[in-house]
Nucleic acid binder design. Structure first.
Lengths: 215, 215
DNA sequence: GGCCGTCCTTGATATAGGTCAAGGTGGATG
DNA sequence: CATCCACCTTGACCTATATCAAGGACGGCC
């Protein structure tokens, strides 16, 4: 039920956990809201994003089952979170969790490890956003999804791509037209094939790796 | 001596701390090196960066006195760290620190807070890199330095800008020419004035704030 | 089964910012 | 005090990607 937790953790946390669901496009929380809860994604996909005043959007990450949500907070959330598909989450009140952590240091170590991983991922993404070309960005993105699928034991090929072009564009700092053209380019070069609705077949992973690193 | 630590923390850590210095341009550690130490910046400025195979560089952050260095690690560092100016650091062996944390949970909470702040900063930077124009990036950068200076009680105006144009460009995902032209634009508009070698006078902070948010 | 709305693709054109090139500036050094 | 070097500025031009525009594909719904 609460994907990323061990039995022992579940045991301790059960008293404060509740389970919540959101339909596609529903907001889980918004940037600036008081940070009352932490979440763990049980099923579905979530996008995290920040907005500029005129509506420009940067997606800072996608979350899937097992991922943690709500670490980058002080008193208020640093970004907004929205369900991409139907999502179920388990939810811990932040204050109660903090109280539990007092007597349960293992969990704290765990959170620190998660934060450390997220920080490393954020730095990769900065490199991508600041210095990679559109081709390199798209190749890197596909490989990220592949590694993610492998990591959580889902099919790597064909690969599930649950987000739409607008989401991909806003994640990579591109426009939907550039995403579309670049994918068409990869298709024409035999690097990927569009299977159907949200599924991509990786035809030449080595080439993708080369492109992603600036080859 | 070890800037960001409380008396109590110092007390506990003293046994494992050592003090190290690096001259300008010296490498503190490189991406991929085994992550043996954590650091705390005592004095000077540090740049963190990642490289692509062909030499393109993304600076992921600048550190000043009081800042922590080495959180985004698993077994190896996720980025390289280099001294900008002469730098002194205090250094903890990672394994020994982890052992101490077992019996010193307050410190762990502290690290989690730091990681959480860094994560929030990383997300701001992603928004900047992915969606802001050159003008917005430079304005945001200057304001970041101003807030930083205020936070650590240094002069906000004139503002110290210890990094060169290449560093600024690689931090903002621009070229040095664009950085230079944009600053010239701000100078001509009376928004900033160049005082001298690494010092900028902020003449119109409100305007900078407007530009930074897309005005 | 036809209509509608959402999402995606493709083409033509525009432009922000990159690239290439040529000085300028100022502090360090012999 | 002249030279040098690292760093910065400015100009001319170029290009990757954005923008604007027009359809196409596909699933949901009546």
């Amino acid at each position: 039920m609460c994907a990323a937790l061990t039995e022992e953790e579940l045991e301790r946390l059960r008293v404060i956990i509740s389970s919540v669901r959101f339909g596609a496009r529903q907001t889980i929380f918004q940037e600036g809201d008081p940070a009352t809860h932490l979440f763990n994604v049980v099923d579905g996909a979530v996008r995290l994003y920040k907005l500029l005043a005129d509506g420009r959007r940067q997606i800072t990450g996608f979350l899937f089952s097992g991922d943690f949500l709500g670490l980058a907070m002080n008193d208020s959330y640093a970004y907004s979170a929205e369900a991409i598909s139907e999502v179920s989450l388990c939810r811990f009140p932040r204050l109660k969790l903090e109280a539990l952590l007092e007597e349960f240091p293992k969990m704290e170590k765990r959170l620190l490890g998660i934060a450390s991983n997220e920080l490393a991922a954020a730095q990769d993404q900065m490199l991508l956003l600041g210095r990679k070309t559109a081709r390199e960005k798209i190749a890197s993105f596909l490989l990220l999804l592949v590694r993610n699928a492998a990591h959580r034991g889902r099919s790597e090929n064909p690969l599930a791509v649950p987000m739409n072009r607008t989401d991909i564009a806003d994640y990579l700092g591109l426009t939907i037209e550039t995403v579309s053209r670049t994918l068409t380019g990869f298709r024409n070069a035999g690097i990927v094939a569009m299977v159907e609705n949200g599924r991509v077949s990786i035809e030449n992973r080595e080439e993708l790796e080369v492109i992603a690193e600036g080859g």
